[in-house]
Design a binder for these strands. Structure first.
Lengths: 144, 144
DNA sequence: ATAGGTGCAAAACCTTTGCATCCGT
DNA sequence: ACGGATGCAAAGGTTTTGCACCTAT
């Protein structure tokens, strides 16, 4: 784990536990967007006794601290990713593959936000569909 | 309820029940974005015995049929709205006020979707922040 | 030493489902 | 009358919480 991150933890009064290091390790190693359950599974090899509740507590903490990202693909569970720079997603509804999109449309809404007198602090854009592999498997005609 | 809607139900082999009419009535009367629980509460005055499970079944059915809209503001429950034309949202994190946004950025992503060979079938854009009223109540300095 | 962190189990929440009964067509 | 729809209760899945014990600093 990077010195920078360790320092960031200490500065804010959080401890650097085996559990937290293991969770960050798992997320940093894979580039994937994992559910808490998936993180819990994969973390077993590094830190076998790590409890699912602890995984949840730490994923939420890390996301609040903007050390990791939290995404919602609308399937009823959150996913977490190591990448923390702002971006959007393209999500395959069949295989779950995710593409990160770095174009952000939010600036186009600035005048609209002003019109409605909102101070906007966050936003999300996610696109859903089928990647080419799944499209071919599906057959090309008449599928949703 | 409009003749058009009634016909649409029959054509597809769905029945027009008191419960369904009451749910549509509630959503059409308010312009708000209601959770299933909220729909259930408000529907009591029209149809007191209507069960929450039935509310869920019908909200999902109506959303699948694109008669109503289903939105997710990331707080762990879905909301439903009478307006079914495609649009986006501005959501106040404090009071829950919602503004509908009719500018859609998805066309700006077309070439990106092609690059990744995705056929995109749906997308969402939601902005979160504080409306002017809540902003004033919060105080203007240093709040998230 | 001490305050924060963890494990465990239980609860909270939202949502879905099985089944007997009901009712729209 | 038929098959879809409803009510009720129970279960499902994800996430949070209370509390005693543990551990990083």
């Amino acid at each position: 784990m990077s010195k920078h991150l360790k320092q960031r933890f200490r500065e804010r009064g959080y401890r650097l536990t085996r559990q937290r290091e293991a969770i960050l390790e798992v997320l940093a190693t894979t580039g994937e967007h994992l559910t808490a359950e998936e993180v819990h599974q994969r973390v077993q090899s590094i830190c076998p006794e790590l409890n699912l509740a602890t995984v949840y507590r730490n994923l939420n903490l890390l996301a609040e601290q903007k050390i990791i990202g939290k995404v919602d693909f609308g399937d009823g569970r959150s996913r977490f990713e190591a990448r923390s720079e702002h971006h959007h997603h393209l999500y395959c509804l069949k295989c779950g593959r995710v593409v990160d999109l770095f174009f952000c449309p939010v600036h186009l809404y600035e005048s609209i936000f002003q019109t409605y007198r909102f101070r906007v602090t966050a936003h999300q854009f996610e696109a859903y569909g089928y990647c080419m592999g799944c499209e071919l498997l599906n057959g090309k005609v008449g599928k949703p």
